[in-house]
Write a protein that binds this DNA or RNA. Structure first.
Lengths: 245, 245
DNA sequence: ATCCTTCTTTGATCCAGATCAATAATGTCA
DNA sequence: TGACATTATTGATCTGGATCAAAGAAGGAT
């Protein structure tokens, strides 16, 4: 019943974009070979973050954007009142830090939820970089545009869905993103805690726990602590599209 | 008590970015004179939208991004179940349509809430355009980044704030955006309905109405149908920053 | 004008999910 | 190995905001 842990453990270090298994998901997606080779020269690879270590914090100067290479990175914003809102969980191949371009300062916090490696795309001289790698410009526009689309979806989830639909949406989104990365869409480990899932979805962790239990009782999923097995994908999909779907 | 209506009526048609009063808020913000002149040659001005007319609809092909010149444009997303979530209200100088770059298709709907004029920045050959106007590239990165920051704030509002804090946040945000545009920050007309405010904030229109009444009873604002007068800005600010603020 | 539709306000009631509480399971470190 | 902190589950109760309802106010069409 328990899925093998290594299916989502990507801690292997890749040396170049060309050889990286993420190339079709990450920044180089759709770029020509020449462009990717030029990109490789710009990108910096840092030593991995340990669980709990920060990639950046609110107030930090903006030095570049980041691509997750392995692991999982949580990004959250702080309200004036000190409350945290998790903005997203970033999987390998996903880009974070884009929201700091305008102010040259990070407003959010990015922290590793497990050992995570990443690449840095220095942004100090972006105009220069995009001149050297013209395809990078369009690529960045597309990545930022996709991020906006994702956030629009999240606004809809937070604004219009009930707790059950939120949790179902969350599970489906995670499942799809794992599938894109070549992992099982039905069997995975939730690295984040119930508390963090609830925070992200605008519900309490008790509610998340209860809905997981309810889904299990109804044969939609099976849950053992952090391991989730989706048993009835169609039922989940029906839940997210609301009553009329 | 009732503010003059024309303070937010910008229906005058401007002919060029150089002469446009919005230049410091809009796409040309911070760009050099030469760049702005080149930009002017690319930008297209269309005849105004009447109230209820659509700038684009979900499924429409992506032809370019839009800058609001006057009026107010509402952007909303549709869920599978047919529910609408308003993503934003766009004021003069603000840019919309950026989320359609990646898929070359609009997923959202943009409709004028009053007579509104706009400019189109054709995006078919963006690489070409940014070669002609290099400053435009950085400008677009910044604008998209700011949009991401705004949406992050909205996620926090939807996910963590109660109804009172949501409405207070909404009023302050509108107030700030009017001030930036040279209008009164204390006296303005809400073009959108209570229904639309509620939809945007993830509460019902009855709740919006009740909270407006409560704020009026407490001397924080005065409301007459669509006209709002902020009487105690500090009280509003205190409300949005939560208990500990 | 008059009708009709839409928007807004306000009251009464209800309920989904929050909060409070207790226990169990798991992980961590000495 | 045991002591302690953290995380997860489940139950009981409470409440903010939803829902249901009604009536007034404003705007639009003819």
């Amino acid at each position: 019943m328990k899925p093998e842990h290594q299916i989502i453990d990507l801690a292997k270090v890749k040396v170049s974009c060309t050889n990286c298994s993420l190339t079709e998901l990450c920044l180089p997606r759709g770029m020509g070979e020449d462009a990717v080779r030029k990109l490789e020269k710009i990108i910096k690879r840092a030593s991995p973050l340990q669980k709990g270590e920060y990639l950046y914090r609110g107030g930090d100067p903006f030095n570049g954007i980041y691509a997750v290479r392995s692991g999982l990175i949580k990004v959250y914003a702080n309200s004036d009142g000190g409350e945290e809102q998790i903005i997203g969980f970033y999987l390998p191949g996903e880009i974070l830090g884009l929201d700091a371009i305008e102010n040259n300062t990070h407003a959010c916090f990015a922290v590793a939820l497990e050992t995570s490696s990443y690449c840095t795309i220095p942004f100090a001289d972006l105009s220069g970089i995009c001149k050297v790698v013209p395809e990078l410009q369009d690529q960045l526009f597309k990545i930022m545009s996709r991020e906006l689309t994702n956030e629009n979806q999240m606004l809809l989830t937070l604004g219009k869905k009930n707790a059950e639909e939120k949790v179902a949406t969350f599970l489906l989104t995670i499942s799809n993103r794992y599938r894109q990365r070549g992992y099982s869409a039905n069997d995975f480990k939730l690295i984040m805690s119930r508390q963090e899932i609830g925070n992200y979805l605008g519900v309490t962790f008790e509610t998340v726990s209860r809905i997981f239990s309810r889904f299990q009782r109804d044969g939609i999923i099976s849950v053992h602590k952090k391991y989730v097995n989706i048993l009835d994908m169609d039922a989940l999909k029906k839940l997210v599209s609301g009553c009329c779907g």
